[in-house]
Each structure stands twice: as C-alpha cells, then as structure tokens.
C-alpha cells in the first residue's frame, strides 16, 4: 500500500518577507503511521503542514504523496488524498450551515447528490455531530466546531489526515473526546501540536522541529524522556511523565 506514504526531501521555504520558514526538512511516513510534529512557536510546524497538500510550495526540495510527486498537475489528486484540518475551525467552516460545510468537499469532487448526502451523514456520525447538521457554524461551541471541521475533511474520505493544533482552545472533556476519536481513525495521521499528552496518546512517532529543521525523529515515548532535547526545543515533558508533586 505505497499510496499512503508521505515523503519530504530537503524542503526549503522562505516567507515573502525574507524570513526562513524551513531549512532542509526530510522525512518519510509510511502507511497507517501516526506522527506528531512538535516544536516551539515559530519552529515551522504549520509551514511544514501547509506543504503537504500544496497550500505552500517549497523553494527547494520535493514532497511525494503516495506515488505522486506534489506538483501542479497532481495537486487535485493529492488534495483528495490528504485531508487538512486547520488550526482555527472558524477559517475552515465558511459555509452557512454545518451540512453545507461538510458537503463542500464532496460536491467539489463532483459526486452525485445522494452520495454527498450519504457521505455527510456518515462523516457527521463518525465525529458524533449528527445532531448539528442544520445549525449555523457560529452557533457551535469550540469543541463542536472542531468536530465539524474534522467531519468536513472526513467527508472527502482522505487516506491521510493532517491536523494543525487539533486540541487548541478545547475544554478538557472536549479534548478527551477528540483524543478518543483520533485513536479510532485508521488513516495515516500527521498532527502538529503543543499538547504533548495528546501526542503521547495518539502518536507512536514524533518529529521535533526547531528553527526550520528536524532535530529529532523517533518513538514518542522515548523522545519525551530526553530532557535535553526537550529543553532545546522549548518543550517540556508531558504532564503525565513528570513527577507529580502531590502523589510523589
């Protein structure tokens, strides 16, 4: 199943104002893997994710999704394969109702209406948001918005899910539900996050980014024990791996 592979080779990116975003990033993620991308603010996490479905194109280097290199002619196919959940669900939910929003992708693929209907229902059921179907997005809570944003991507049935800060702004229960939901997905997952506990729960592998470079790539549980590495990248151990001051 080589078509779910995500591979980046020596990616470089420079912002229009001249600041360097990525400086030679390479990795290979195979089918079914779940990978966390962690790092300080401004380390290049979001920039990296934006390269994975062609929202940004690299100044140098290549991205391969499955068997295709990511170039202009393959862009449409790649975007159907790679589903991207943005950091702020308000940016992603731009249609007047939840239904319209989740149907946006399938309609653009050109599916017939019954199929669209079925996909929307299924995607909303998966994230437990079936009841929100006719609500306008601005009436939803943060957690509901996040679920719907995920549904709006699932409805295109992507093979690879890319998420930027999925647990940001969520209350503890909504966050827990999100983690449980993510665990059930069989997709290849790439998740950029500051929430290291989430990374520990969901992802077996982690990439640590620092100033546009990958400074570590390995098993999540191992990397998070490496205090030196963590402090270099402005991180700290997940709460669960710290010595608890109360029960010590």
């Amino acid at each position: 199943m080589s078509h779910h592979i995500v591979e980046a080779q020596n990616l470089h990116y420079v912002y229009p104002d001249g600041t360097a975003g990525l400086q030679g990033v390479s990795f290979r993620i195979t089918h079914g893997e779940s990978v966390a991308v962690v790092g300080a603010n401004g380390a290049g996490k979001s920039t990296l994710l934006m390269h994975l479905n062609g929202c940004l194109s690299p100044a140098q280097g290549t991205v391969r999704i499955g068997d295709f290199p990511l170039i202009k002619t393959t862009l449409k196919a790649v975007r159907r394969t790679v589903g991207m959940v943005f950091q702020n669900p308000d940016d992603q939910l731009f249609m007047p109702t939840v239904f319209d929003d989740v149907a946006f992708g399938p309609l653009n693929i050109g599916l017939p209406e019954e199929e669209v209907e079925q996909r929307v229902t299924q995607a909303l059921e998966t994230v437990g948001a079936g009841a929100l179907r006719d609500r306008p997005p601005y009436r939803l809570s943060k957690g509901e918005k996040r679920s719907v944003a995920i549904a709006s991507v699932l409805s295109m049935s992507p093979d690879i899910l890319v998420m930027d800060e999925p647990s940001a702004d969520l209350d503890p229960q909504a966050r827990r539900r999100l983690i449980e939901l993510l665990k059930t997905f069989k997709h290849t997952k790439i998740i950029a996050t500051h929430d290291l506990d989430l990374a520990l729960d969901v992802c077996e592998r982690t990439l640590v980014l620092s100033r546009g470079r990958i400074c570590a790539d390995g098993a999540t549980a191992e990397l998070f024990r490496n205090d030196e590495l963590l402090s270099q990248s402005a991180l700290e151990r997940p709460l669960r791996m710290q010595n608890c001051p109360v029960c010590r």
Binding site: C55, K76, D91, F94, F104, G105, I109, V153
Partner: peptide, 22 residues
C-alpha cells in the same frame, strides 16, 4: 490574513472558483 486562510481551506477541499451547494 484570515481571508488567505479561508482560501487555503477552500482549496484544500477542491475549491475551483465555484461554490456548489445542494
């Protein structure tokens, strides 16, 4: 900037200049 992000989000879901609705 928000408009840019919305545009990216639209593109990611196959937007080609035409918004379709049922």
């Amino acid at each position: 900037e928000r408009a840019e992000r919305i545009y990216s989000a639209m593109q990611c879901r196959g937007f080609d200049g035409d918004i379709k609705r049922t």
